[in-house]
């Protein structure tokens, strides 16, 4: 068996939850809100998606429930930071801790229950092309949807009027407010979108990648998604590239071990983090680009003057 094809396939599967979570956070941050609660929202999404799929037998319902649960949690974050103007960093961290605890509590009786995996979609004809078919046309639907999401986010931010408003609010909420844009509504919608994406990312773990529920199963992926947004300088294409890079290097280091390369495993385990940071830093090394892309009012509460 040619080992390259399955390697690439597992890279894609490993990168997909990161793509969802990181694209969601990109929109949130572009609106000037820093939500550090991705990890918590992912876990809530994972447990909600798992429970809903177990109850109904439908993955679609599972993913919808996960998105809903992510939105619910993000609304709590929105209320605290946008209405009550609490510190976004502290509130986000609290959201992660809350999500970890709540998901463990809710999922207490779900642990140890297996779930049948989501069948891959075999596009007739295309999937039987040797190698190319295996490489491109044998994934579950959520992989393809993550690419659709990427295109949509890219289009929204760059081409759409609403995206322009969102970016303006992220840069200078007071100016946007002065010309009649509702900062609160836009930021709420952005935060909810981020919550939905994080929820879906979590459900991807509990429904597709490893169809089971176990406490803390996101194992830090929410933080990696967060880092990808920053190192990808808030550009969706770079964020997605970073996610694939991270998944790919993780896969490569396991592959290298299986071949018995004489490299310390601790070094190999570090490699995905190091490689992703290095590559993205090289791509985005121009400080001007960073400044240009970083939302100027990121993490700063906005209080509309009466």
């Amino acid at each position: 068996m040619n080992p390259i094809v399955p390697m690439i396939a597992s890279t894609v599967v490993a990168a997909t939850p990161l793509i969802y979570a990181a694209l969601g956070e990109t929109i949130v941050e572009k609106a000037g809100v820093l939500n550090l609660g991705i990890e918590g929202m992912m876990l809530i999404g994972a447990v909600a998606g798992f429970a809903a799929t177990l109850a109904t037998g439908s993955d679609t319902v599972g993913f919808m429930a996960a998105a809903g649960a992510g939105v619910a949690l993000s609304l709590a974050f929105g209320f605290l930071t946008l209405n009550l103007q609490t510190n976004q960093v502290a509130t986000g961290l609290a959201l992660t801790l809350f999500g970890i605890g709540l998901s463990a509590f809710v999922g207490h009786n779900l642990a140890g229950t297996p779930l049948p995996p989501l069948p891959p979609i075999f596009i007739p004809g295309l999937s039987s092309i040797p190698i190319v078919g295996d490489l491109l046309f044998r994934y579950d639907i959520m992989v393809y949807l993550s690419l659709v999401l990427f295109a949509a986010v890219e289009w929204f931010l760059i081409k759409s009027h609403a995206g322009l408003t969102l970016r303006a609010i992220g840069e200078s909420p007071s100016v946007a407010h002065a010309i009649g844009k509702s900062v609160l509504t836009t930021r709420y919608l952005a935060v909810m979108f981020g919550g939905a994406c994080a929820g879906i990312a979590g459900a991807y773990l509990s429904l597709v990648q490893t169809p089971m529920w176990v406490e803390g199963m996101s194992a830090g992926k929410g933080w990696i998604a967060l880092a990808l947004v920053v190192f990808g300088t808030w550009k969706p294409a770079r964020v997605v590239l970073g996610a694939y890079l991270f998944g790919g290097v993780t896969q490569f280091q396991l592959f290298a071990q299986g071949f018995g390369l004489p490299i310390p495993t601790e070094f190999l385990s570090m490699l995905p983090y190091a490689a992703t940071v290095v590559v993205l830093v090289i791509i985005c090394r121009d400080p001007k680009t960073i400044l240009l892309n970083q939302p100027a009012s990121l993490g700063i509460s906005f209080h509309a003057a009466a």
Binding site: P6, M7, L205, Q209, A219, L254, F255, G258
Partner: peptide, 22 residues
């Protein structure tokens, strides 16, 4: 294959896929 963790379902999955591919 050493994954340097006791518990990370995603990474364990990738390790298993790699071993099977090899």
């Amino acid at each position: 294959i050493w994954v340097n963790t006791w518990y990370d379902p995603g990474k364990e999955r990738q390790a298993a896929e790699t071993l099977i591919a090899q």
